[in-house]
């Protein structure tokens, strides 16, 4: 059914056909509803938004910026991580900087090279590991550490419905329900001052919806995909899900909605009590030494040249 007499530009999985104006209102309304439903924001926030320059993070930043303009108690800034992926991250960071300059948003950029002494590309020359594994560990480490340094109360990310759906299935196929217990619109199982709470305002927005919003609002840059993404298990799960979604519309919503019902039980079952801290860097972790320090130690042991000596992690 069409929303009005204007030309429809989007059709939802349940058959609603929306024009540009009604689609923008629909997506923004969905994000605001998600924030209310899952209590993602308090009345006062010093909110960081983790951005890459891609459509998802710029969409969430754009909508949260609008929210902060309506509500002066919500202060906002952006954080970007430069992993050092030649030919990819430099381009997306330029887009991120341009967007922030245009919208009067302060952008903080932190790099692997500066923080760890090595770029991701250099790390991958030393260690024979899957790029996304090591990249994710260092990125999460830096985001949490720098968010605390910036005294952020929460960190919003651009994770969307498709991302969550992929994570749910990946964890099930690996029999890792403990990892699933950490999913959801509010990341993690416990609230602790060692963690800056991460939130996902696009939790119920499908990737196609976010792309449509980014296109309509001129935030869609030329196609950019991390060159390491083809190696990932996630990419294969994503393709499988898209085939299922084509055959059975609404599959992704069904997976995430059923997961939301299970999530409280998972959190209760895998509740881990007090958070430990890494004995080397004092960042939160589940073991004695955090994964970032473990990988840095491996990098140090395998480094072939003093020119690429990793830095020690300090408090």
């Amino acid at each position: 059914m069409n929303c009005c007499n204007n030309k429809p530009i989007f059709e939802s999985y349940d058959g609603n056909r929306l024009c540009k104006i009604h689609f923008n209102a629909y997506l923004e309304g969905k994000v605001f509803k998600t924030i209310r439903q899952f209590e993602l924001l308090d009345k006062e926030e010093n909110l960081g938004v983790a951005i890459s320059g891609g459509k998802d993070s710029l969409t969430v930043l754009s909508i949260l910026k609008r929210l902060s303009m309506q509500n002066p108690n919500i202060k906002i800034c952006a954080i970007a991580i430069d992993e050092g992926i030649a030919g990819y991250r430099d381009r997306t960071l330029a887009t991120a900087q341009e967007f922030c300059d245009k919208n009067n948003i302060r952008l903080h950029i932190f790099s692997y090279k500066e923080e760890f002494g090595l770029s991701l590309d250099e790390m991958l020359k030393i260690l024979n590991v899957k790029p996304c594994t090591i990249c994710g560990i260092f990125r999460r480490y830096l985001l949490n550490k720098k968010s605390k340094e910036l005294k952020l109360t929460k960190l919003a990310t651009g994770h969307n419905l498709d991302d969550e759906c992929q994570s749910i299935l990946m964890n099930q196929m690996r029999n890792d329900m403990k990892a699933s217990a950490r999913l959801g619109p509010k990341v993690g199982m416990v609230q602790d001052e060692k963690f800056v709470q991460r939130i996902k305002p696009l939790y119920l927005c499908a990737e196609k919806e976010v792309t449509t919003y980014a296109f309509l609002n001129r935030m869609l840059d030329s196609f950019n995909e991390c060159p390491n993404a083809i190696h990932s298990y996630r990419a294969q799960v994503r393709d499988m899900l898209n085939v299922m979604e084509q055959k059975f519309l609404g599959t992704k919503y069904s997976i995430v909605n059923s997961f939301i019902q299970m999530l409280p039980m998972l959190k209760e079952k895998f509740s881990c009590g007090a958070i430990k801290v890494c004995s080397r860097c004092s960042e939160p972790c589940s073991k004695d030494i955090c994964n970032a320090c473990v990988y840095l130690e491996r990098l140090k042991n395998k480094a072939v040249s003093s020119l690429i000596e990793p830095k020690p992690l300090n408090n």
Partner: peptide, 8 residues
């Protein structure tokens, strides 16, 4: 034809 897949 614009891909909705991005990032990594």
């Amino acid at each position: 034809i614009l891909s909705v897949i991005s990032g990594g």
